[in-house]
Amino acid sequence: MIDIVLEGIWSPIVFILVILITTLVAYILYEMGNPSYKRTKHKGEPFISGNRPPKDIRKIHVPGDNLFWGFTEALKNYFEPLVEGHTGKLNDYMYWVVITLAVVLIYIYMAV
């Protein structure tokens, strides 16, 4: 048996105070920055690896399919059966209930 005593403190108000103080310090540091810096005319434009931003404003935004694409592509073998398992057929939904019921029944008769 692991012998760990639960200790420690969690206080959201202290946490929020710490966040506020940190923000304040960061702001002071920001204000102490070099005042000779000049903003360029490209201010506010998205930076796309130095390329010029496209005219059509919709093309700047990354659509939902592309986010985490690498992650889902790498774990394709895990995701595909899951997505295809949700077939949308009523019978399949019922199968899952009956299968779970059978497994739980067997477990309860063996273990309880």
Binding site: I99, L101, V104, L105, I108
Partner: peptide, 17 residues
């Protein structure tokens, strides 16, 4: 017990139900 547990777990949207 098993019947009640599974059905209420199903209503509580537990995987795989």
């Amino acid at each position: 017990l098993a019947l009640l547990l599974v059905i209420f777990a199903m209503k509580a949207s537990s995987v795989p139900m």
